[in-house]
Design a protein around this nucleic acid. Sequence first.
DNA 1: CAACGATGCGTACGAGCGTACACAACTCGC
DNA 2: GCGAGTTGTGTACGCTCGTACGCATCGTTG
Lengths: 186, 186
Amino acid sequence: MARRYDPGRRQRIIDAAAAVVRARGIAGLSHRAVAAEADVPLGSTTYHFATLDDLLVAVLRQINAEWLADVERWAEGVDPETEPADELARWLGELLTGERARLELEYELYFAALRHEAARPLAAECLDEMGRILTRIVPDAATARAVVALIDGLTLQALLTDRPYDPEGARTALARIIGGSGHSGA
Amino acid sequence: MARRYDPGRRQRIIDAAAAVVRARGIAGLSHRAVAAEADVPLGSTTYHFATLDDLLVAVLRQINAEWLADVERWAEGVDPETEPADELARWLGELLTGERARLELEYELYFAALRHEAARPLAAECLDEMGRILTRIVPDAATARAVVALIDGLTLQALLTDRPYDPEGARTALARIIGGSGHSGA
DNA sequence: CAACGATGCGTACGAGCGTACACAACTCGC
DNA sequence: GCGAGTTGTGTACGCTCGTACGCATCGTTG
């Protein structure tokens, strides 16, 4: 039977599940697919995560945490001297060109929340946390919420259509929402 | 065997499929579920739609068309004297309180486009058409695109979290994006 | 009214799925 | 070093699914 001593297998299963979701979407998440990806027997995934929902929540939690950590890291590197709209528009551009897969993963979470009661709090936490981080960059909390909404909408447009991202249009819209000294473009 | 003469069955199958998607989401769409909902035998659904993807596309096309017709109807009833931001914010509020199910259905389409190549053009068409309609209400096309993004983001926030819709916040953000004579609130 | 294509019906097959469960192999406290 | 609890393994059951296919029945065209 060749049983393997494998501490941290639980984490490896989560990582494998994330890979499965990335490749096939949440609809493609299954005990068997994860077991194959993690190179562990089927029984092992069902041992660590009794039900598929448990596994789903664990994966979404991890994806969410990684994403928020990324956002946090980005926010720390923002130059307080430049216009927030410029920084945001540039950041969006980088994400959409270089990390499409990561973004798709995060939006997979959003949509899971639409149907899965269990994922609802995670999506809410993500939105709140994004707002909290942005509050350090834009004037106030209400503005931050609006910026989150606009960013989500713009990202969705770029992800759903294969149209190229329009940095100038994004910058203008962000500047208008943020207000302040933003030179609001044509 | 009691065969029934049933012209327009194809349409009834599409309607049933829409009901299934509304109730269980795209993940719950299956030939069998649709057949049961439409009260036709299994073979009938596979005759009219050889593959499940065909059925999915037909449903999404219909959902999309109905949605856009609704938007069109709303746009025609907009009073050109009042502020666009006010009208938009009020409309959003009505949708979110009274027609949550319809909205969820439309966003289900968005979600499908993320993974299903076949649904991509439909999502793109929806975004374009929304922009086209809004161009009659806001100053220019670029602004219309930004408004669509903001609306999508706000809707997503309201649908994903169970937080109540904030009409005043929405109105303020919309007014800023639209610009013009919008009294941009506090 | 005959023949033919379009449409409707029932069933069957093979695959993938979640889950349960019995048993094996290990770690760790004593 | 030994017993108990934890972790790993293999397999099996029952279900749903997409799809294919043979046959029945209808409208239509000639």
